[in-house]
Amino acid sequence: MELKFYIESGIIESFVLGLASEEEVEELQHMRRLYPELDTEVEYVERRLESAAFDEPAMPPAEIRDRVLQKIRWEDGHAYSDPSSNYTFINIQPKDGDHITVHRWWKIFFIIFFIMSKVFLFLAIFYYLKYRMSQEQQRSDNLHQMIRQEQTQNPLL
């Protein structure tokens, strides 16, 4: 009698629709172990819902069938297939240990690095020459000064 009351409470429907809480589901599973006839009741409810749903089917577009079943074919071919994406990735690089694969950003990094090294090289040469010029300038200035000093000390020369 109590079992009938339990069934009539709609707990099975709640479980089948996915609305039952974890405790309720656990309780139901426990009850099913105690009263195996509950299994039949669960099946009745599930069958009713199934017939109701089959009364008004709406087929998804054909491309969905293709997508679902195409993935099966890939799986059967043992190719790598990621369930969340649509393509197969096949690595065709030789596996000999002499080659490495790097991210494409390394390319940009190396181009920038190359250009920067040229710029710094240019600047280094440029400033070196400038430094040499200013050094020479100073030396010739000193020379002029010395000559002038000697002239003033020795006006007869």
Binding site: V16, G18, V25, L28, R32, V42, E43, E46, R47, A53
Partner: peptide, 11 residues
């Protein structure tokens, strides 16, 4: 805990 495929899929 499901007895038939349909409700298993549905959930």
């Amino acid at each position: 805990g499901h007895r038939i495929l349909f409700t298993w899929l549905l959930r």
